[in-house]
Design a protein around this nucleic acid. Sequence first.
DNA 1: TTGCATGTTCCGGA
DNA 2: GTCCGGAACATGCA
Length: 265
Amino acid sequence: MVTRRAVPELPDVEGFRRVLGEHAVGARVRGVDVTDTGVLRGTTPAALDRAVAGRRFTEPRRHGKWLLAGTDGPTVVMHFGMTGSLLWCAGNEPRHPHDRVIFRLDRGELRFRDSRKLQGIRLAEDADAVHRLLADTGPDALTIDQREFDALLTGARRRIKALLTDQSVLAGLGNLLADELLWRAGVHPARAAGELTEGERARLHAELRRVLRAAVRAGRVPPREDWLTGVRDDPNAPCPRCGGPLERTRTAGRATVWCPRCQSR
DNA sequence: TTGCATGTTCCGGA
DNA sequence: GTCCGGAACATGCA
């Protein structure tokens, strides 16, 4: 099996939320160190430090791939792009070269680590500002029910995979998870979303719940060989379900993997 | 050295 | 308005 460092999708961000929840809630922020301003969006090192120093983190929330790290003042809003992560360091572990923003707390440090800096950290002064940041984001994929899910698909002419990964429609799924769900539900990625049958929509929604719950428990998309995700990096891997050859295409610059036997058009 | 990467945004064209 | 593909962002890796 070929594995690669996980790109953060909803389950990974849920894992980061747990890190923050377990270690930082209630702790006072002594200060914020910014080692690379390239991850700050719409704020500056001085403004960030001024805004959160002396504040205490409250219970963090997540919406899609966004992590909302609230304090008793403003909210620190994090997005991890393709390479970001959030770590807790209790001791004096040396800082990693990609630790871009460090929140120094009473009993340790919360580190925003990110090599590519495709996204980063924003500051929202109040609930309205958080709301505005998430205004173009669809419902969270972890909690959406069947009826809401059906409503998203009804009448849509675009391809189902494009719809599932569009954060303004449904928040949280990335390229990997979308392929996984479609493969499990037996739905071809290029099908028009609005043309899925009721049964197909139900299967897709059931797999959405199943896959996300398992992945959230693991804090990542688990690299299991009975999942499509676990084998997709191997160019010669057969379909884990039927053993047939997998197909690969590229849509809008993104790799798409599916099984032509299990996912008919 | 070159091409590729699981995210997001913007732009042009059909 | 809808949908799609491509490029850009900045960096590491095979």
